[in-house]
Computed example of a mutant assay.
Amino acid sequence: MCIFCQIIKKEISSRKIWEDKQTLVILDTAQDMNYHLLVLPKKHIANIMECNDETLSHLTKVIRSLAQTFLNQGFAGINLLNANGKTAGQSVEHLHFHLLLRQANDGINAWPKLPGSTISLDETYANLKINDRDVR
């Protein structure tokens, strides 16, 4: 069983920030920054590609509501991070969103340093352009 499922089932302790029937929000134990939260669906879902529309919609509503609550409490901004699949850096195969609560001048750069493109914009566009009929 995955570590997040164990936390949801209270087999592993956590610092619960908020909870409803479908969602658990906990404090991340990594201590890589102040105010790092994890937003988890209670149902085991590996990643965003396996998430049904209803659950994903609920998660985004929870995230937006919590973000507004924290902004009202004095935080200056919010970063929302998500990785899908090992290649993208997903370390736990249970859908989760990192909610980083930001303070003015906290010195955190939450954006990855990207290496720069090795192909032209035209080639990128040609490789990615999707026809309406291709989208499911």
Rank of each mutant, 00 (worst) to 15 (best):
K61Y: 09
L40K: 00
K42R: 08
A88S: 13
F75K: 07
L95E: 00
I45E: 01
S65E: 11
H58Q: 04
M33D: 08
N34D: 13
H36T: 02
K42P: 00
R64Q: 15
Q90W: 09
L56R: 06
N34C: 08
D28P: 01
L80V: 09
P41I: 00
A30E: 10
E93Q: 11
R64C: 13
F97H: 02
C51H: 04
Y35P: 02
D32A: 15
Y35D: 14
Q90N: 09
N52E: 09
G85M: 05
L38E: 00
E50G: 13
T60A: 15
P41R: 00
L81Y: 05
L100Q: 04
T55A: 08
G85S: 06
A76N: 11
Q68K: 11
P41S: 01
D53W: 09
I48H: 04
T87P: 14
H44C: 01
H94F: 04
I63W: 05
H94D: 02
A88Q: 07
Q73V: 08
N82R: 10
K42Y: 03
F75N: 05
N79V: 10
K61E: 12
A67Q: 07
K61P: 09
L37F: 05
A30V: 12
L66P: 01
L56Q: 07
K43T: 11
L56V: 07
A46N: 11
L100F: 08
D53S: 09
L99W: 03
H36N: 03
A76P: 09
V39Q: 04
M49C: 13
G85N: 05
L40S: 00
N52C: 03
